[in-house]
Write a protein that binds this DNA or RNA. Structure first.
Lengths: 205, 205
DNA sequence: TAGATTGTTAATCGATTAACAATC
DNA sequence: TAGATTGTTAATCGATTAACAATC
């Protein structure tokens, strides 16, 4: 049985993909692990190990066929399977992410947002509807969304996570600076922007 | 000589701080590493080791004095030293972060934003001025900002990073999905929202 | 005192790097 | 062929966990 990819390797795959996609056509057909490594400031063995988890294989002496490598990474990251996501909470951040075009690079379609504010419900942001959080279950069924992004204040995040878990969301990207407790089978990853910046502030001291 | 904190421990300190701050007053004076650990889903020895990097010390049998622990974390994270940050790029994300109130929990003040769009220059977002990116040097000197958040498109991020490095910014939080190259002495950390969501999508498969 | 919890040292675990044979 | 690069195995490094003495 092949070994499953560790999460830490998985997290680097989008980095490789972004880099490879950014290369100009003139870069040529092949690219070596060493070239990728030096562009990204990492070790070349690590690059090869990470890439080995995908279906990509390189050729000794020349490296990897760039287009094949991109395709292998896209397949591994399921970029070709369309997946729907929803955003909960249309404050500044939710609004920004609803309008952000970068998700489609990974086959992710942000189809709708949910909020409790009656002023916002029924409006559209970036052509996406803002729906009533109380209709979450029906709304999610309709859109078949397995992914959710929590952009509500910390005080509301746990109850939102509970609702999302109940209606079948499988993974949550949480921007609220609070630890969420969710049932087994639901994955949560946190992004704490202020906390991350504070770490940088502490590092420069 | 005391050992320096590894970055991976440092990154957990804001998590502890957020948790401790969120506790109601009624929680009592003391809190144990075991209580923190189980609330955050981690090992209790790890919690103690992390906390030991700060000045916090606990008492056998009772745990840590909650207020002292908060104070020790705040001191370690320099929450009491006022630090200024700027945001480069007032698209949806830059706008959202300019209006976000969470930075002040860490003593960080986002004082201004910079953009190249003449339509935006001279306006105010959340009472913060949007300035001309070409006046970055003067603007940064005036505000004494050592921290910057890059919210421009990937294609512009490297040139922004070059400018920031040149005018003395010491740490950059980069939201553009591209690897930035900066001079030694400048720290960069990346947040790739779409990439992070794609990792979650891959994990649920 | 007995029991709970800290703080630290040793053991384990996992990730990265080094070494190197295979190969185009 | 010679040289460069892959893919893999072994060694190293660092982080987490286990064990346990100290102590309130």
């Amino acid at each position: 049985m092949e070994k499953e990819i560790p999460e830490i390797s998985l997290q680097r795959l989008p980095v490789y993909l972004n880099y490879l996609r950014s290369l100009p056509e003139s870069e040529g057909t092949y690219i070596s692990s060493g070239a990728i490594a030096s562009a990204l400031g990492m070790g070349e063995v690590l690059v090869r190990k990470d890439l080995a988890y995908t279906k990509a294989t390189g050729k000794p002496k020349v490296g990897y066929v760039r287009e094949e490598l991109v395709a292998a990474l896209e397949e591994f990251l399921c970029c070709n399977n369309k997946k729907n996501a929803v955003i909960i909470g249309i404050g500044g951040l939710g609004r920004a992410l609803l309008g952000y075009g970068g998700f489609k690079n990974y086959g992710i379609d942000v189809v709708a947002a949910f909020d409790k504010d009656e002023e916002k419900i029924g409006t559209f942001v970036a052509d996406k509807p803002v729906l009533d959080i109380n209709g979450l279950e029906g709304g999610l069924k309709e859109h078949a969304a397995q992914l959710a992004i929590i952009c509500v204040p910390a005080s509301a995040a746990q109850s939102v996570a509970d609702m999302l878990s109940k209606v079948g969301v499988k993974a949550i990207l949480n921007f609220a600076p609070v630890q969420l407790s969710v049932p087994k089978g639901v994955i949560v990853r946190n992004i704490d922007v202020a906390g991350s910046l504070s770490v940088l502030a502490a590092m420069i001291k």
